[in-house]
Computed example of a mutant assay.
Amino acid sequence: MSASELRCFMDFVIPLVRNAGKLLLEAKNFKIETKDESWDLVTIYDRKIEETLILKIKEKYPQHKFIGEESSAAENSIPELTEEPTWIIDPIDGTANFVRRIPLSAISIGLTINKQVVLGIVYNPHLNELFHSIKGQGCFLNEERIQTSGLKDINGACFNYELSLARRELLRNLYLYRLKHLIGRTEGIRSLGSAVLGLCYVAKGAIDAYQCDGLYAWDVAAGSLFVQEAGGFICDTTGKPEIDIMNPNFLATATKELSDQFMAIEKIADEERINNELK
């Protein structure tokens, strides 16, 4: 796929995303539902935005495939990622923030070709932040090129750790043991409640490191590209050679050096957890 073709995709989808953002700004008096887990919220706007984006993109590119959060939830199945052009959509990342009027939620779209993310668009209409990137061409916020902070020392790191995922019993000890070892080594801990914005804020240098385990493709597809295109580093936290966007467990950092320091500490935390669980 040529750079000009990817640019055409970008130019077509950005106005769709901006229009979807208007729906979020106008939203009021809506019903809040839950999915399989009581804390996993969904609104009519999640469904409406995803349906509209898929419909419009499919009209323009009928051969393209789609993986959407809400359509996957409705079918209780996530489509297989193939080598065909595939749009991975999160209509509202940070729905819990959205329903509480916290201005940290965003529409996220990533495009994969040959199972690799080649394009990403993320829009937080509450703060008028439009992030976008084409693989190999850098990352941009409102048309201004952005870079990570470049931090290499964990002692000065602002670390975003998505602690709400520790509600899942299978992940709780993993999160808490790592937090115990990391909290005294970093400058500060944040938990933003939006995976994609966590990645965006690493890309723009506002946060130095962001970690989350147990997410889905729509949470990371666009943001993982942003971090790399902004000069950062992203790795799989389970020991795989690279992040698997269909089963993402990741640490995103401003630099490889910073990643190495985090992972060394987490290795100690994981060993302590495993030893204690075996007792």
Score class of each variant (00 low, 15 high):
residue 195 A to M: 14
residue 116 Q to E: 13
residue 179 L to E: 08
residue 123 Y to N: 08
residue 155 N to W: 11
residue 133 S to K: 02
residue 127 L to V: 12
residue 196 V to W: 01
residue 183 I to A: 11
residue 188 G to K: 09
residue 182 L to H: 01
residue 115 K to R: 12
residue 139 C to D: 05
residue 137 Q to M: 14
residue 211 Q to I: 06
residue 159 F to T: 00
residue 179 L to I: 10
residue 162 E to Q: 14
residue 122 V to C: 07
residue 163 L to H: 03
residue 213 D to K: 01
residue 130 L to T: 04
residue 155 N to P: 10
residue 144 E to I: 13
residue 102 I to W: 02
residue 190 R to D: 15
residue 193 G to H: 09
residue 157 A to V: 05
residue 128 N to R: 05
residue 130 L to H: 02
residue 207 I to A: 12
residue 197 L to C: 06
residue 210 Y to G: 02
residue 180 K to A: 14
residue 199 L to M: 09
residue 102 I to M: 03
residue 172 R to G: 08
residue 158 C to K: 14
residue 130 L to Y: 04
residue 103 P to N: 06
residue 134 I to R: 05
residue 183 I to N: 04
residue 178 R to L: 02
residue 114 N to V: 10
residue 194 S to F: 03
residue 210 Y to H: 15
residue 176 L to E: 12
residue 208 D to E: 15
residue 120 G to W: 01
residue 157 A to W: 02
residue 188 G to W: 01
residue 187 E to M: 15
residue 125 P to A: 08
residue 169 E to F: 04
residue 185 R to V: 12
residue 155 N to E: 14
residue 154 I to P: 00
residue 169 E to W: 05
residue 140 F to S: 00
residue 200 C to F: 00
residue 179 L to G: 06
residue 198 G to H: 03
residue 203 A to C: 05
residue 145 R to A: 10
residue 152 K to D: 14
residue 114 N to P: 05
residue 166 A to K: 11
residue 121 I to R: 03
residue 125 P to F: 04
residue 103 P to G: 04
residue 154 I to N: 02
residue 120 G to Q: 03
residue 200 C to W: 00
residue 139 C to L: 01
residue 162 E to K: 09
residue 183 I to F: 15
residue 104 L to V: 13
residue 105 S to G: 08
residue 166 A to V: 11
residue 158 C to G: 13
residue 167 R to D: 12
residue 102 I to Q: 14
residue 202 V to C: 03
residue 192 L to A: 12
residue 147 Q to K: 11
residue 176 L to Y: 09
residue 143 E to S: 11
residue 138 G to H: 02
residue 174 L to E: 11
residue 157 A to R: 07
residue 143 E to C: 03
residue 131 F to Q: 02
residue 105 S to C: 11
residue 159 F to Q: 03
residue 179 L to Q: 09
residue 117 V to C: 13
residue 145 R to C: 01
residue 201 Y to M: 10
residue 200 C to N: 04
residue 202 V to H: 05
residue 175 Y to C: 10
residue 119 L to K: 00
residue 197 L to D: 07
residue 156 G to W: 01
residue 142 N to M: 05
residue 196 V to N: 15
residue 117 V to Y: 09
residue 126 H to K: 04
residue 204 K to W: 00
residue 207 I to G: 09
residue 110 G to V: 06
residue 115 K to I: 13
residue 121 I to L: 07
residue 170 L to T: 12
residue 107 I to M: 03
